[in-house]
């Protein structure tokens, strides 16, 4: 396991380095004068020169890059142009909200997908199965920037059951989490259904049945357990989609997380903050992918990474 972890982390390093470099290039590729883009055309040349000095933009690009890497290694993402605070501190205050939202979305997706997927597989061709198929088709087609406002119209405006926006208790969390988790629920329902149907044709299932195990045990202990491997992979891969999707969802429900912060940073042309947010989301994505690989290895010891 130690060797596997070391190997996996070593593989991650060039990707991390590349991602950091790409974000640096991107932010430095702002067309025209980046200082003018940040301060506006009417800013005085003294202000522009002061900002350029503060950001190190008066230095050669290579010097700027080395400084950027050095600061990043120390966890320093620079200072926000808009409110002068430290970018790392600003992001840190928003992480709990985004984490809460993405975990709730994931929980909702699993709560929908498991019962629906299992029911559809057990009663293949039934009304429940057809519903599950329709749900997964529509769940994938409905964009979250439409689903969010629709849920808001129905449950907050028309019925008045749930708050329109903001962060508070479980009532505030439900609609944003449902909006964010719907696509994942659709993908997982489909995966669990098809995974179970495929598994039920395996020899070991026939053996389990021949041993006289009751049907419930065969499904839960043997079939479902093996389908879990693909579910873990999809959950891991989809976590990135959840993080990216949080930008739209947080903007719809005024949820105070990293997604909304990213958008605010873009609107105010706060490039150090944009850079910090993009890197934080990308790093979290890579970390979750690594965690998925490790969990994958734990639940299925047959998997090796020899190459």
């Amino acid at each position: 396991m130690k060797r596997f972890l070391l190997h996996r982390i070593l593989l991650l390093l060039p990707t991390l380095f590349g991602a950091v470099t790409l974000v640096f290039i991107l932010i430095h590729a702002v067309p025209g004068d980046p200082v003018e883009a940040m301060l506006g055309e009417t800013a005085s040349s003294a202000d522009k020169a002061a900002l350029a000095r503060e950001l190190g933009l008066d230095q050669p690009v290579l010097t700027q890059y080395i400084r950027f890497l050095g600061d990043l290694a120390k966890g320093d993402l620079g200072r926000s142009l808009y409110n002068q605070g430290s970018v790392s501190a600003l992001i840190a205050t928003r992480i709990p909200a985004t984490l809460e939202l993405t975990l709730a979305a994931m929980a909702i997706a699993l709560l929908i997908a498991f019962p629906l997927g299992i029911l559809a597989a057990r009663r293949r061709g039934s009304g429940a199965d057809r519903f599950a198929l329709l749900f997964s088709l529509f769940g994938l087609a409905v964009p979250n920037f439409w689903l969010g406002p629709l849920l808001m119209i129905a449950f907050s405006i028309q019925l008045g059951w749930l708050p329109v926006s903001g962060r508070g208790g479980a009532a505030h969390l439900l609609l944003p989490a449902l909006t964010l988790g719907m696509a994942m629920a659709a993908i997982l329902t489909r995966m669990i259904r098809s995974g179970l149907i495929e598994t039920m044709h395996e020899d070991y299932i026939r053996t389990a049945r021949a041993k006289g195990l009751d049907e419930r045990r065969v499904w839960l202990k043997h079939a479902l357990r093996n389908s879990l491997i693909s579910v873990v992979t999809i959950v891991g891969l989809q976590f990135g989609a959840l993080l990216a999707g949080s930008i739209v969802t947080e903007s719809i429900f005024s949820w105070p997380g990293i997604g909304r912060l990213t958008l605010q940073a873009i609107q105010t042309r706060d490039y150090p903050l944009v850079q910090g947010c993009v890197l934080t989301i990308a790093f979290s994505y890579l970390a979750v992918n690594l965690a998925t690989d490790i969990i994958y290895r734990i639940i299925d010891p047959r998997i090796t990474y020899e190459d």
Partner: peptide, 20 residues
């Protein structure tokens, strides 16, 4: 791998933030 280190639309948002 580097491009895939960014989830889905995030990089597109970053690109359009820079390009306008």
């Amino acid at each position: 791998d580097i491009l895939m280190a960014f989830p889905g639309i995030l990089l597109a948002i970053a690109f359009t933030a820079v390009l306008g």
